[in-house]
Write a protein that binds this DNA or RNA. Structure first.
Lengths: 230, 230, 230, 230
DNA sequence: GATGAATGAGTGTTCATTCAT
DNA sequence: TATGAATGAACACTCATTCAT
């Protein structure tokens, strides 16, 4: 009655079965959102029974979390070019572009992570929290390196910079996540990178010696300040 | 804690009853979150029946939305000093401070608005959307005036600036909204205002760049001194 | 919010109040059907309170029944030309036409009477049952007179004739009552009258003695048969 | 009378469970009517839970409809003799008799179909609509064949004939459906068939009218004889 | 390992009716 | 006479989770 749902072989080794459930679950999460995500639909879609799902996933929530983690793994697993030679502005742009592209590619999953999981007390104990930090790191690494190279100011509150960048990313994509319209990854990334650059780069970076010295002093003081915060 | 539901007088005039329901609903929303918010508990807490609630609120969701709107009204109703005379940096700081203070005072409600309502298609048709825009406006008005006065760059993408400011506000408060720890409204506001200022103000404006950097270095050193005294 | 509902004077004499309630109730019944008929909507539409309605009508059902009765009264109160001079076929047609025109003019009310009230045990104790019988009488009177005048066969089972006529009327109007399309009162009436006429009029009405005798035999047997059914 | 709900074996194969639910549902429909038909009572009566019912029937209405369809299937499944050799009058009588016998055997279900389902917009998309048409067809087939054989007039409005026959059937059985008294399937069938025959047969057809009347008299007397033997 | 039948504690919502004011 | 606040008993429907087979 509800379509034949490819007649999966009855008995599967643990790995295959888990994989097939996760795949179906991801589809359901994409199509329905986490609110409307039911174990029944997952079972139907992967041609197994709810009982089997509960064999491998103790809880609906665990399944949902696993889907998100696996999805995140795929993104983090993609090779990410270091671009150590590119100018710092280029690298910042690219790191932001990459974060935005995740949102763009998987809105439903992003929404689930940002809105359901992140709001959950205990979020910090999840693997996805650490995965998310990795994403953040890719961007912040560039910022820190910009500081070392003297391109960016040394006295930045890095947490604040982080919050501004990722806050902007989320704000720019809310409408999209809500299903209202689209956004351009390129345009958003270059807009954010641009404002951030101006906000954090060293002003007169030109060439007079006094300015140079001041800049060096600034870097040293910045590092001192950071040490004091520990 | 829940007690025997103080035997409120049976008959109340419409206004009082509505107020009593809203009050109870707000408490439930605070205590349980919107997911676990049940009309049954609201009824019990204000010593009435679910039927009565539905007399005044056609839907669970309507009740929830009304709670949020009423709460937001309270904030918007507070007098907000114009500070037209203060320097632009002061005014920006204050506007951000004000937005942060809303979050600080009512985390549960903020969380509901940001995570449930904002994700809802149709969010834009709600009064709370307009109320939220007012909050945003208080900040953006300052930014636009800064442009008029020549303090801020004229070529800013205002939507991007908005997203960065409010994105940062939200990011800085997530942990708090999740119930993990606290944050300082003052510190957050000054941090955000600071970075934003640098990112959007006209570069060479107040004197030459070297002078400005020196001025900033002074400030940092001042803070270092203060810390050494601790 | 729901329109001002002409500000009826607060205090009305019993008659006026009852009339105003009945009027509103009829409208609601028409617009919503008896299933969706709520006392709340009636109260709102006639600008009074549910309490007042219950002052005059002990029960929702009583109100509904009163609406139907009053409506039927209006139809029965209309002058109905006797047409004693017209040919019998003409008179039969007209009587059927009249019954059909009631259905056509008030489908919602008809539907309520035919489907709700008539199915109700106790239907026979209602005034509407007697009103309905009057309608039936208008048609059957013609049939009986046709028998007296020798136009119609004397051995007719009058109840059966009645059931066929009114059964046909209802069957022809079901789709209309269901809200699916329309029907022509004229066409239906003439169709029904036509078939009925042929079925009940005296066949060859000619004069040979054998036929006469057979006809008499037929009548006798008919009566015998009827007795056996008791 | 309701007893302690015989502790049916907890686990049943799908088919058995569905059958047990349908059986219980049919009983409830019979006892309470469709208005008072609640899923809770069905669950209780077949010793299962409402949840289980909803596993198999997506909706209360679907369950109700299934009950009606299944019941109708039982009737349509019974072998129905073609009687191609019998005289047309006999065949007409029998077809009507058969339709009446359905009503007689299952008044509550008939009432549900005639009054609830038929009034439903969308009635025409239901299987029961087609099942009902089959019943109608059994009668109308005879009528059409009568036309072919020259026994019945060729200029009949078949829809009208249909409406008269089934209208009469329903009218004759209303009181019974309402639970007031009984009716005789034989008597009703022969009455209706009789009047219809006269209304639709070709006047002078098979020889002279006297012959025809005599033929009819024979038939009636034959039936009288049969009755006297009871 | 796999199944799928079973559940039961909810969930929001409805509305005729009552009765203190 | 009129009100309208209050109710409570229902009701259809949901779904994560369990467990006998």
């Amino acid at each position: 009655m509800t379509g034949p749902a490819k007649p999966q072989p009855k008995r599967l080794p643990r790995d295959k079965r888990v994989a097939s459930i996760l795949e179906a679950a991801r589809t359901v999460l994409r199509d329905r959102g986490s609110e409307q995500f039911t174990t029944a639909e997952v079972a139907e879609r992967c041609g197994t029974s709810e009982g089997t799902i509960y064999k491998y996933f103790p809880t609906r929530r665990d399944l949902l979390v696993m889907v998100a983690e696996q999805w995140f793994d795929e993104f983090l697993g993609q090779t990410y070019p270091d671009r150590a030679d590119s100018p710092i502005s280029e690298r910042l742009y690219h790191a932001i572009w990459w974060a935005l592209s995740i949102v763009r590619r998987e809105p439903a999953l992003t929404r689930f992570v940002l809105m359901e999981l992140r709001a959950d007390p205990g979020y910090r104990t999840l693997r996805i929290y650490r995965q998310n930090r990795q994403t953040v790191e890719r961007v912040m690494k560039v910022v820190r390196e910009g500081q070392s190279s003297g391109d960016f100011r040394a006295d930045l509150d890095l947490n604040l910079v982080r919050d501004m960048i990722f806050g902007a990313i989320e704000h720019q994509t809310w409408a999209y996540l809500r299903g209202e319209g689209d956004f351009s990854v390129d345009a958003s990334a270059s807009g954010i990178a641009d404002v951030v650059m101006r906000g954090i780069e060293v002003p007169g970076a030109a060439g007079d010696p006094v300015a140079r010295t001041v800049k060096r002093l600034e870097a040293v003081v910045g590092r001192l300040e950071a040490k004091l915060d520990d």
